[in-house]
């Protein structure tokens, strides 16, 4: 019998290799090949530049805070020093890591999931004080399960309702916390 392993690139059909006991070296290799793609030079450049800008902003604001003198340092002195360190290190990073991107990870199409997740969290923060935690939490659970987690409509509905009910029972009924709630 011939044992055949298909490798396809579409993520939905990422066919996995039957895993047997392996030596540490082979294992390290598998982990290496499973690791996501490295961020690359563009991300490297971008992150360094953002940090430089951040450091400049820090320096300007620190100077406005009044540096004082080394004998009598005022409020701005320490943030000033730290901002300078950030700027210098960012520039060093820019130069030393030019070829860059040995660390970090490239954004994939699934990175949208993280963004959507972030959006639902912000929505929860905005809505919770207004209409209580139940509805926004239900919404969050449902979005995370149905679209970010590819659950079926049925199980997403069922589990998200269940989760909110249990959280209500624990946080409101059980612990009596003052989380905003409608019921």
């Amino acid at each position: 019998m011939q044992k055949h392993k298909d490798k396809q690139d579409t993520p939905e059909t990422d066919e996995i290799i039957a895993t047997e006991a392996l030596t540490p070296e082979e294992l390290a290799e598998i982990w290496e090949s499973d690791a996501p793609a490295k961020a690359g030079p563009v991300a490297h450049l971008a992150s360094s530049l953002v940090l430089v800008a951040f450091s400049l902003a820090g320096v300007i604001m620190s100077v406005n805070l009044d540096l004082g003198t080394p004998q009598t340092p005022k409020a701005g002195m320490w943030p000033f020093i730290v901002s300078i360190i950030i700027g210098v290190m960012a520039v060093v990073q820019l130069i030393v890591g030019r070829g860059g991107g040995r660390d970090g990870e490239r954004f994939t199409k699934y990175s949208w999931f993280a963004l959507i997740g972030f959006a639902t969290l912000i929505l929860l923060v905005i809505l919770m004080p207004v209409i209580g935690f139940e509805v926004p939490s239900l919404l969050l659970c449902f979005v995370w399960m149905r679209w970010l987690g590819a659950e079926t409509w049925r199980s997403a509905t069922l589990y998200s309702t269940l989760v909110v009910v249990i959280f209500y029972l624990i946080f409101i009924v059980g612990l009596g916390t003052s989380i905003p709630h409608v019921i």
Binding site: G117, C141, M145, G149, V163
Partner: peptide, 12 residues
Amino acid sequence: IRAAILAPITVL
């Protein structure tokens, strides 16, 4: 338990 179910729970 699937991560899709666990993730919103840990977040909440």
